[in-house]
Structures are given as C-alpha cells and as structure tokens.
Design a protein around this nucleic acid. Structure first.
Length: 431
RNA sequence: GGAGAGGUGGCAGAGUGGUCUAAUGCGCGGGUUUGCUAAAUCCGUGAGCUCGCAAGGGCUCCGCAGGUUCAAAUCCUGUCCUCUCCGCCA
C-alpha cells in the first residue's frame, strides 16, 4: 500500500494514477478520515498522558480517601480513552479498506492505458518465429498423441484444470526446473524450495486476497493457511516484520514451488490445455533491494528471463505493461510473451513470464525494513519479483515450437542432458 | 498428537503489580589518557507515531492479540514460535 502521508500530500497525483490504473478509490474520503483519525489519536494520547500521571502519583498518596478519589479519576480518564479509541478504530478500518484499493504509483515510462490492448511491445527475442511447411498442432493434440500430458486422468482424480505430466514431459519439467535454477545460481540468486502453503497474513502482505468471491486463492478450511499462488508469497514473507542491514541488500532469491490458482471466471479456447491450469510448478525470482537499486534489479530480472527463453530457442516479445493492466502492487511490469504456434488461428503470443518492481508497496504492508549502519531510523525495502520459468506455460511454448511434421518434438539443446534424448517421439509412431 | 519449559533491546541475560525512565555484561559510537596498537577510564547507545522553527515534549511497543487494574514485562485468556521428553511417521 501507499504511505498515508504521501497520499495526503499528493491527492491529485494519486487520483490521476488511480484513473490511469483503471481503479476506483475514494481518495478524498481517505484524506478526510485520516485527518479526523489524527485528531482523535492525539486526544487519546493527551488522555493517556493524564491518566499515566494519575497512576504514577497514586502510590505516593497516604490517605485512603485521597487514593479512592484518584482511582476514580483514573477510571474516568481510561473510560474516555476507550471511547476515543472506538472512534479511531472506526476511521482506521474504513481508511484501510480504501488504502488497500489504491494501487502503487506508476513508473513515468509506463504506457498509459486502460487495458492490455495498450501494452507496448519493446523488443523481440533472438529466435525468429518459426515457419512450418505443415499445419502446426496445438500442445493438447501433441501432448495426447505423444502420451506425455494426461488431462483425462487429471479431471478424473481432481477436476477440470488438473493434469498429469507423463513420460518425457516429466523429464522436460525437471530439465526446465534445473535449467532455470542453474541460470539463477550463476546470476547470484540464492536457490530455495519454499512451502506451498502460507499464512493468510503473509498472502495479504504480498497483495493477495485469500477469501471472497473473486479470489484466486485456495484456502485450507479450519486454518489460517492458503495454498500459494506463487513463491512470490513465501519469498516475500521471509522478511515480513523484519529489519535488515542495508549491507545485506540486494537480497536475491529464487524459489521453486507449486502454484495453485482457482482461476475463477476464466474459460475459453485461449485458456485450453496447459495454458491456464489450477496447479503448476514455477521457478520464481524475488529480490529485496534498497530503493536506489530496484530499477537496475528489475532490468536484471528481465534480462534473465530473456536469456532463458533465448537459450531455449523460443521466439518471444517483451511487453511493457500498460497502467490499467498492472494490478495493485506493481510500479512497472514487463511481460515476456512467447510465440505459441498452436494458439488461435495460426499462432499467437502468450504470456510466459512477468516481472514487477513493486517498490515499497508490498514492503509497507509486509513491514519489511532496512537500516543504514550508523544512521537512526529504518526505511522500507523495495521488492521485486519475476518468473524464471512457469513450467506449464513454458511447456506449451516448447511443445508447439519444437514440433515436427511427424508429431515428434525436438528437445531444446540446453535441456538434452537432463532429458537424455534429442527427440521425443510418439509411442504409436514407433510401433 | 501428549506432557513440560520458555519467548525481554544488536547479542547474552536479570526482572513475578507501582522510582522499569528495563539491571548487568558484551557489542557499537564518541571523549580522555597514551610513541603506535592494546589496555584503562568516562559519556552515549532500540523502534514506530506525534507536537514543536528549535531546544525539547507526549503516546505506543518486553513474540502476537485480547482481558483484569488507577497502574501490567510481571496476573488472566487465546494464539504463534522455540526447546526437552514421549508417541506416530515418509
């Protein structure tokens, strides 16, 4: 969330930003409430100071009568405090409900626009879009004929949107994980395998809403835990409530986790197959940085994503996300959209990674701070996240781009050591 | 899962209702002494919010959330975490 003082001092900027972000938030009301909250708060402080003085003086009092009189005075004062506190809490909860809607400010270079139609293509990857001299199939058809993706069993066991990876798809999965993690270790990221569940408090700190009709989150009944939608949640939670030395920043982490999403309201042909599923595996980048470092680390994350898809030999474009499509926490967001020959009529780009600089927006809610050695006070860190590889979508791109006329799939060179073969061939074709 | 113990400043650790404004030690910053270093010695050392031009005040914080009381680190309830023992288990 944004700093309240900042909102009050920059009402017009915040309102314009809300408009650019396609968000309706009553900024004026927040300002009004915050000002009256402050008044009530200083009244509480004044009353507390008085009551504290009474309490201190009471021990020295000799006579019972005088003592009882002071007790009574103390009681009265504390009652007034309780009443004033109720006022503050009323303001507080309404302020908070507005404040959590107000999105982060936007990077000055962000393309301004209401929807993803305004997203700006920045550049293309090294690999050209492949030309097929046959009609390319989609990953569903290929996955089925190669017997490497089993949606039927997934639906049977768990439900629509779940799947089994089988045979060589398992090896591709593991190879992609290893390839991504290796790349990140070489780039100075500390690898982790994170929990797949987190406390709702941590979800909220990172900007995810665990309950409600439109939630993306599966929560565990009878507990305050939810399945994570991304390792961004668990990695961001690592420093929740903590203060670290400025020396230890930037802290660059990568996390391997399963990701669970309800995908409420999403359907349609563009979402078929592995493209939009309820569970997938992802290698995620995350960083805690000093404010002056976040822009550079954001570029670094984007460069790593490009490197991964360049080395996989998959065509893609880099997109600078428009303000209306940024979501709440991001200050700027770059997506990589890979070419998917089986998508739409004759192929389309589909999102495979996303990297966001959230500046101090997440950190404020998480209460993640840093301290400069020798200086007084603490400040909020900046947080960034980025997809290294979301396995399911990477598989879509990989399978569709590397398909051959006979329905087999060439294994990208960088994955061959782990997969153990150059080509994935149909069992039926072999017979 | 059962039984017990415990969570206090950067760290260690005292504190079981009212000079707690949290002892003491270590660490850290500064002064003095001193060929240098070391040692000694003295002073200072948490965070958030808020009032004030400033000097300097006020409020809150002893895992977290409530409660009792004029007054809570201290008593009560819940909760999270850590440790020890037992049980179960990949």
């Amino acid at each position: 969330m944004l700093d309240r003082k900042f909102i009050i001092d920059n009402v017009e900027l915040v309102k314009t930003n809300c408009k650019n972000r396609n968000v309706t938030a009553d900024v004026e009301r927040l300002v009004e409430l915050e000002l009256s909250r402050r008044t009530a708060q200083s009244e509480i402080e004044r009353l507390n100071a008085e009551a504290n003085n009474v309490a201190k003086s009471i021990a020295a009092v000799k006579t019972t009568e005088e003592k009882e009189a002071k007790k009574e005075l103390g009681r009265t004062l504390r009652e007034q405090v309780t009443a004033a506190k109720a006022d503050v809490e009323r303001c507080e909860s309404e302020i908070d409900s507005i404040q959590r809607i107000i999105p982060n400010m936007s990077h000055p270079d962000c393309p301004i626009g209401e929807t993803d139609a305004e997203n700006l293509e920045l550049s293309r990857g090294k690999t050209p879009i492949p030309k097929f001299d046959f009609k390319p199939l989609d990953h569903l058809t290929l996955g089925e004929s190669l017997d490497i993706i089993d949606f039927e069993s997934g639906a049977n066991v768990t439900g629509a949107g779940f799947y089994f990876l089988k045979n060589d798809a398992v090896l591709l999965d593991l190879a992609l994980q290893q390839f991504a993690i290796r790349t990140l270790i070489n780039a100075g990221f500390t690898p982790t395998v994170t929990p797949d569940l987190a406390r709702n408090e941590i979800l909220q700190g990172t900007g995810f809403i665990p309950r409600g009709p439109e939630t993306q989150i599966y929560s565990i009944d009878g507990t305050d835990l939810s399945l994570v939608a991304t390792a961004e949640i668990t990695l961001g939670g690592m420093l929740a409530g903590k203060t670290v030395d400025a020396d230890s920043l930037p802290l660059k982490l990568c996390g391997l986790s399963h990701c669970f999403r309800t995908e409420a309201g999403a359907a349609g042909k563009a979402s078929r197959g592995l493209y939009r599923v309820h569970q997938f595996t992802k290698v995620e980048m995350f960083a805690f940085t000093l404010p002056e470092q976040s822009d550079a680390v954001h570029k670094e994350m984007l460069a790593i994503e490009c490197k991964i898809f360049d080395e996989l030999g998959i065509a893609y474009r880099i997109v600078d996300t428009a303000t209306g499509d940024l979501g709440g926490p991001a200050y700027r967001k770059f997506d990589i959209e890979a070419w998917m020959p089986g998508r739409g009529d004759g192929g389309e780009f589909g999102e495979v990674t996303s990297t966001s600089n959230c500046t101090d927006y997440q950190a404020r809610r998480l209460n993640a701070r840093y301290r400069n050695k020798g200086e007084k006070g603490t400040k909020f860190v900046h947080t960034l996240n980025g997809t290294a590889v979301a396995i399911s979508r990477a598989l879509v791109a990989l399978i569709e781009n590397y398909q051959q006329e006979d329905g087999s799939i060439i294994v990208p060179e960088v994955l061959r050591a782990v997969v153990g073969k150059d080509v994935i061939e149909s069992k039926r074709a072999e017979k």
